[in-house]
Computed example of a mutant assay.
Amino acid sequence: MQGLDSETTATDTSDRSDTSDRSDRSGTSEASGRSHTTGGPGRDLSPLLAGAATAVAGIGAVLALTGSDSPLRAPFTLFFLLAAPAAAIGAALSGLDPFARGVASLAGAVVADMLIAQGMLALNRWSAAGGTAAVAAFSAGTLLLVLMVRRRRGRAVRGRES
Rank of each mutant, 00 (worst) to 15 (best):
Q2V: 09
G3I: 03
L4A: 06
D5N: 14
T8M: 11
T8S: 08
T11P: 00
T13I: 14
S14R: 14
S14P: 00
D15G: 01
T19C: 04
S20E: 06
R22I: 09
S23I: 05
S23G: 06
S23Y: 09
T28H: 09
T28G: 02
S29N: 10
S32D: 15
S35K: 03
H36Y: 15
G39Y: 07
G40V: 04
P41K: 05
G42C: 03
R43T: 07
D44S: 04
D44T: 05
L45F: 09
L45W: 08
S46F: 07
P47L: 11
L48A: 11
L48P: 06
A50Y: 07
A50H: 13
A50D: 15
G51P: 06
G51H: 06
A52D: 03
A53G: 12
A55H: 10
A57C: 09
G58I: 04
A61Q: 03
L63T: 03
A64L: 03
T66A: 14
S68L: 05
A74W: 13
F76A: 13
L78C: 06
F79A: 08
F79Y: 04
L81P: 06
A84P: 00
A88I: 02
I89M: 12
G90E: 15
G90W: 14
A91C: 05
L93Q: 11
S94F: 08
D97W: 14
P98L: 07
P98Y: 07
F99Y: 12
A100D: 14
S105F: 13
L106E: 03
A107R: 05
G108D: 15
A109V: 02
V110Y: 09
V110T: 12
V111P: 02
D113A: 05
M114R: 11
M114Q: 15
I116R: 01
G119E: 01
L121E: 01
A122W: 07
N124G: 01
N124C: 00
N124T: 00
S127N: 00
A128K: 03
A129V: 01
G130L: 01
T132W: 05
A133I: 00
A136N: 07
A136C: 01
A137Q: 08
A137R: 12
F138N: 06
G141W: 15
L143H: 10
V146M: 02
V149H: 05
R150P: 04
R150W: 05
R150L: 03
R152N: 06
G154V: 02
R155Y: 13
G159S: 11
G159V: 04
R160N: 11
R160M: 12
E161V: 07
S162R: 15
